[in-house]
Design a binder for these strands. Sequence first.
RNA 1: GCCGGGGUAGCUCAGCCGGUAGAGCGCCGGGCUGUUAACCCGGUGGUCGGGGGUUCGAGUCCCCUCCCCGGCGCCA
Length: 435
Amino acid sequence: MLCGGAIEVRKVFTEDTVGKEVTVRGWVHRVFKVGGKVFAWVRDPTGVVQVVFEKSSLPEGTWPQVKKLTRESSLEVRGVVREDPRAPGGREVLAKTLKVYGFSPPFPIRGKEEIEFLLDIRHLWLRSRRMTAIMKIKHTILKALREWLLREGWWEVTPPILTGSAVEGGATLFEVKYFDKKAYLSQSAQLYLEVLIYSLGKVWSLTPSFRAEKSRTRRHLSEYWHLEIEGAWYDMEDTMKVAEEMVAYAVRKVLEERREELEFLGRDVSKLEPALETPYPRITYDEAIERLKAKGFNIEWGDDLGADEERALTQDFEKPFFVTHFPRHIKAFYMKPDPKRPEVVLGYDLLAPEGYGEIIGGSQREDDYDKLLQRIKEEGLNPKDYEWYLDLRKYGTVPHSGFGLGVERLVMWVAGLDHIRDATPFPRWRGRIYP
RNA sequence: GCCGGGGUAGCUCAGCCGGUAGAGCGCCGGGCUGUUAACCCGGUGGUCGGGGGUUCGAGUCCCCUCCCCGGCGCCA
């Protein structure tokens, strides 16, 4: 029972309501006016039910209001549930009373609109059943990731969003005014998480991350939710296990709790089931290059994996898989070189199948003061900016590793979306800032 | 940043070799007691993204510019 004695729309169908009087509340999803009858499909967060209005069943004076109902008008109806094969879902509510909270002018979305128009009215578009299903799936993914980490004893911490200097140097930062100085919106919490492992051991954070590139792809946002973990004494392989167990758990929870939403989105759930089983396959960068050469790609050892290459690799696997040991020069300065093979780093990406590609990037971090300082210099970065970071290697350094997961990327794959913008309610990308 | 596509009614689009603006949907009015993207009749609808040029005449041709979409690069 909801506040005010109303019931959730879904329960009209799932509970013993036939012949009983109920109150439903929501918005008019669709309305059909046929002579002396009006059919209104009423939507609430749980579903849609058909409400039938007949003049003879309503109190004096209500009928003119019924005739005025439009899509997205908000209302409360008290009526009797009855079974009728002509009603969607087999049940409908015959209205006895109607209270309109707010009539709606003609709703601008009817189903054939172009993306630019829809993005300008995103605040209205979000009412669609499709967007609702995606947001519910995202909720479940976030809940599952958090559940897994808390269960395994990871501390949740709160790194800053405003930072004083670039973390990786490469990515473009959003600059903001900070009193009489310049500051930047964080693109990763990693360096701060590395600080916190010296007291808490195993830490994680969920924060927005910002990238100022005007990326023109369907896999990039300029603001996205970033789940990052960092563990003291963890080596590369240890955090890969964390990554795969956590992802498998999230997929399992979505399959258990959000099956209806996946089906509404037309997601082929059999494509997700292989991801329930860990471990996920591991291939080295060397092997990836060999596979790509065999597929006819013109690629040499040392080249970074482009979008086409990544997509081609994902076709070899039916579940997420790791690519490990990338050449040092294509990866960030903080990654630890493999002691057995210093030209590659102890870093990895986790790629989702079906062409979705990278959802996680992680590595073991360089824990030696001198080697880290040397790498900072090699990258042309200013050691002054990294003084505090270098201190971590001075005051009781430990081997440690971590990764970052792009939440919207994970949602995109699990929900089977063709664009990352739908994995977040108010996408910030390519300069879009409205609404 | 680069390559490709696009901008015409509230929405989705058509508009030929340059000749003075069209359709469907929506909306308004009327009709209809079982609609599922309802249907039928009538009505309403435009700074053709912006600026400049060629021309008797430009939505259409030329130049500049802004915005959007798809892809690449960068990454999560």
